[in-house]
Simulated assay, not measured.
Amino acid sequence: METATTYGARAHARAQEGARAEAMPVVPATDWPDPPRDAGRLVWAETVGGGGYAHRVLARGTELRLTDLRGDACAHLLLFVADRPWERLNTADTVKVQWNAYLGEGRLLLSDQGRVLASVVADSSGRHDALCGTSTLVRNTERYGDGTPQSATPAGRELFKLAALKNGLGPRDLPPSLSFFQGVEVGKDGALAFTGSAGPGASVTLRAEQDLTVLLANVPHPVDPRPDYRSTPLEVLAWRARATGPGDALWDASPEGRRAFLNTTEFLAARGLA
């Protein structure tokens, strides 16, 4: 189709309406072709390609399911309270408060205010990491020859910078991230052993316990020993649900978790949000 003129370019652009690419958001999300059976109304439906990123603001109680479609996705995650971005994911407290460095079903993702940002309500992968963070420009340049966002081997932190800017945040707002679908284990000598992926189709479901700004970067894990840049598509689906409340099994799973939920609820109640 001729695109040398404004009319031709417009016709070409309009001809793309309704086309689907492998990696793209579906708008509206309710048009997603195969929604989960147990999901409520979809509010976010997107496939994030290898080396890509995504971001969205989600309401309290929303459930977010990430799926490793082909076995080589690695979902690096950052969370910020939507109207208070200075309250954000704190990986050190997430590990320290729960006496456990390994993420999985029943774990909570905490801020440095002693409050719950999100909870892990389902997990079929078990290959996650709260220790290493994501890849950097310097590291990817040394390893692959480039780490800029526009390259074939973008670094996770560089993609996070782009996602952050689109939500009014800057590089100084970016703390260490969590990683889903590519895990590490700590040996008795303190060395990290890469455990890799659980394989295609593994998923993890998070529940937003406050209104959250979610940033995702789908890039290889920084300690993945394979010499080439391997990153395959990540499916992202979110739907309306409800926040965790008293009486839920997750609320009382541990004394530390119960205290974090109480801190969260008291804070939200004071603002008329719970």
Rank of each mutant, 00 (worst) to 15 (best):
107 R>L: 10
84 R>V: 06
47 T>F: 00
124 S>M: 00
74 C>S: 12
35 P>F: 04
30 T>C: 00
33 P>M: 04
107 R>Q: 14
81 V>A: 13
134 T>F: 05
123 D>N: 07
25 P>C: 06
130 A>W: 03
51 G>R: 03
66 L>R: 06
60 R>L: 02
90 N>Q: 04
78 L>M: 06
61 G>D: 05
90 N>S: 15
86 W>T: 14
30 T>S: 15
105 E>R: 15
38 D>I: 04
37 R>S: 12
128 H>A: 03
98 Q>N: 10
20 R>F: 05
27 V>Y: 12
103 L>R: 06
99 W>T: 02
105 E>A: 11
130 A>N: 11
81 V>C: 05
87 E>T: 07
41 R>I: 11
86 W>K: 02
88 R>P: 09
86 W>A: 14
82 A>N: 01
21 A>K: 11
87 E>K: 08
15 A>Q: 14
24 M>D: 09
129 D>W: 05
21 A>E: 12
71 G>S: 07
43 V>H: 13
86 W>M: 06
42 L>A: 06
27 V>F: 11
50 G>K: 05
64 L>F: 12
34 D>H: 12
49 G>F: 09
78 L>Q: 08
128 H>V: 05
97 V>G: 01
113 Q>N: 10
19 A>Y: 02
79 L>Y: 12
24 M>I: 00
90 N>L: 03
106 G>K: 11
130 A>L: 14
18 G>E: 07
125 S>H: 06
28 P>F: 10
122 A>N: 10
74 C>K: 03
83 D>V: 13
26 V>E: 07
